[in-house]
Design a protein around this nucleic acid. Structure first.
Lengths: 158, 158
DNA sequence: TCCATTGGGTTCCCTCAAGGAACTAACAAG
DNA sequence: CTTGTTAGTTCCTTGAGGGAACCCAATGGA
């Protein structure tokens, strides 16, 4: 599908993948550790890891050759996906955390404070949220075919 | 699970939900429109819409009483979820768009320019990405039980 | 008046992927 | 030479997703 959301979901759309990614991100990066931590079936975990490696999100590397042992590490591509996790965390904290407060805190290296992410426009630096943008067809849009859907989507712009 | 990522995924973790959300966001917000646009089964679409409404992400409202006709609209909670979509789009554009370029562009109301989102720290305003934070247990963390995993996760830090 | 159509779903069946448990391989330690 | 550890694979069963058909209320057209 000519939609970056769909293409992103194609890589990490199924519900275990973000959790696997999160585990690798925090240092839980070996097969059995991940399996126990998530209580995921070994079969599905093996499939997901293979998929994530094939798609360049994780790297499988040997940390011992005799006996052969492997662990998983984030690639640059994978680390950038973790930004998505930070945004998920923010939403989850705001809307589902309950009275106990957030289960995990994030300390920003640059300022040393506990904080959370905000979305800013890369051009003007001001806040840029879903309510602040118009959606327009881009160069990679599926060719002519001005479908009713497309017209509707173009017209929207809030 | 005491993890905001898991809680977020509980709401929109299955692969159709973000696409449904995206459609409602751009104005494709009636049952048949969504169904045709995504080529999703009517059964699953009905289930997902019900789930999203139950969870306060969408609102089902009547736009005609005779005959009774309904459409779906984003709540505030749902609109904030769309921030997640903007971040997905950014990643998808960077890593999966190919040579054709991004299929969709986003124009920022504040500056009028085509841009994309960046993550900033809400405290100090500087860039805050996954590589720039330490992960610490928060108030809502699952109680004592200092598991090996936890220790490992705490020790990690970037 | 009757029929077809539209919007917004249900119902039923069937397949396919997820889950669980057990098994394997390769080596190390006691 | 038995036990343990890591990293999977195999096999079977169950449950969720897809497809197609059906439903119902109202409306438009012949």
């Amino acid at each position: 599908m000519a939609c970056s959301i769909a293409r992103t979901l194609d890589v990490i759309g199924e519900p275990w993948s973000p959790l696997i990614l999160r585990n690798v991100y925090v240092g839980i990066n070996r097969f059995d550790q991940i399996q126990q931590s998530l209580d995921i079936s070994r079969k599905v975990l093996a499939e997901r890891l293979r998929w994530l490696v094939e798609n360049g999100v994780l790297e499988r590397r040997e940390y011992s050759s005799r006996p052969p042992r492997h662990e998983y590490a984030l690639t640059t591509k994978g680390l950038e996906l973790c930004d998505l996790l930070l945004v998920m965390v923010r939403w989850g904290d705001r809307w589902t955390a309950g009275e106990a407060g957030p289960p995990v805190l994030y300390r920003h290296h640059a300022c040393g404070e506990i904080g959370h992410v905000e979305l800013r426009c890369a051009v003007c630096d001001r806040p840029m949220n879903a309510a602040d943008v118009d959606v327009l067809p881009g160069p990679g849009a599926e060719p002519p075919a001005t479908s009713p859907d497309r017209v509707r989507a173009e017209r929207y712009g809030h």
